[in-house]
Simulated scan of single mutants.
Amino acid sequence: MRTLLGFALAIAAAGPAAAGVQTKDVEYTYEGVTFKGQLAWDDATAGKRPGVLVVHEWWGLDDYAKMRAHELAKLGYVAFACDMYGVGKLAKHPEDAGKMATEVRNNVAVWQGRAKAALKVLADDEHVDASKLAAMGYCFGGSTALELAYSGADLKAVVTFHAALPTPTPEQAKAIKAKILVCHGADDKFIKQESIDKFKAALADAKVDLKFEAYPGAVHSFTVKGADAHMLPGMAYNAEADKKSWQAMQDLFAETLGGKK
């Protein structure tokens, strides 16, 4: 958690005039609800570049999602850490996080609609090549990235990290345009094998390009260094799985978006 605090302080201290990676808060609306996300880009890079939508965990848009967007900006992408709950909605207790995530998931049209509204913010940014877009997310955010793909969004790639894997309908699966990378903890007890099997079968039937990576010894939230602080059984950081999954994401983005490996 100290690492995330240090990141936030460093960004605040840097200010809008600092060289290198820049950040900007952006407010947008969907069906009367106001959201606030954060764009990140490297102003040392000239011209338009690929855009990556980053979707937060079930806690809401916190420093972790913003940190990942910052890392993507350093790799040469424009990243938008979006907000799926609304301005100021951030949970610290799992019960509150679960309620907020469930409220969104219970209405697929709203779930997808909010994700598409965020993708539009990214695509419309002056630094972005809107023909090269991807989405990625963590836990709830990974499921959201998949729902965005199910909506037929014009994405080149989708990457999930320790996400639930909602099964698309046959029509939704056929609407997927992106190559899909699932980064999964092989020992994640939160995601049932039945769900994994149904997800894989649905994508296979629609001939979707899917790569499923399961990391031995990794459990839920394996990419989040602060996961252990929540004291929830089955959630823990795994440095090796974190490193390997981030590299797998970079490889896919290099292939589909023309970015760095």
Rank of each mutant, 00 (worst) to 15 (best):
K36R: 10
A46T: 12
E71M: 14
E103G: 04
K66R: 15
F80G: 11
T45R: 07
A81F: 12
R49M: 01
L75A: 15
G86R: 03
W111K: 02
A69P: 00
A46L: 07
D42P: 13
K36N: 07
A65N: 12
A97D: 03
L75C: 12
M67V: 12
E27K: 02
W58T: 03
A81C: 15
H93D: 15
K48P: 13
K89N: 15
F80I: 00
N106S: 14
D96N: 12
W59D: 04
V108N: 15
A69R: 01
K48Q: 03
M100N: 11
G47I: 09
G86D: 06
A91D: 06
V110C: 11
A65E: 10
K74D: 05
A40K: 06
R114M: 01
R114G: 02
W58V: 04
K36G: 06
V78N: 01
R114C: 02
Y30R: 02
M67I: 13
Y28Q: 04
G47P: 02
K36P: 06
K66T: 15
L72W: 00
V78W: 00
A40R: 06
G37W: 05
K66Q: 14
G86V: 10
G113N: 08
W58G: 02
R68W: 08
N106H: 13
D62R: 05
F35E: 08
A101V: 13
D96E: 12
T34C: 05
H70W: 14
D62A: 09
E31D: 14
Q112K: 10
V87S: 06
R105P: 12
G76W: 01
R114Y: 03
Y64T: 07
G37N: 02
A73V: 04
E95G: 12
F80T: 02
K74E: 07
G37C: 03
A65Q: 11
N106R: 12
A101P: 15
A46N: 07
Y85H: 08
W58N: 04
Y77Q: 07
F35Q: 07
K48Y: 05
A73R: 00
G98P: 08
T29C: 10
R68I: 13
M67L: 15
P94N: 03
L39M: 14
K36T: 11
H93C: 13
Y64S: 14
L61Q: 07
C82R: 00
H56T: 10
P50M: 01
G86P: 07
M100L: 15
W58E: 04
L53Y: 03
D83E: 11
H56E: 04
H70K: 07
T102P: 00
V78E: 01
V108F: 09
G88S: 13
T45E: 06
A73S: 06
G113I: 00
D62T: 06
Q38V: 02
D96V: 02
K99E: 08
M100S: 14
V52W: 01
G60V: 03
V55C: 10
V52Q: 00
V110H: 09
A101R: 03
T45Y: 09
R68T: 10
R49I: 01
N107A: 15
N106V: 01
V108C: 11
H93G: 14
V87D: 04
P94L: 10
A97H: 05
Y28D: 05
R105M: 13
V33M: 08
E103L: 03
G76M: 03
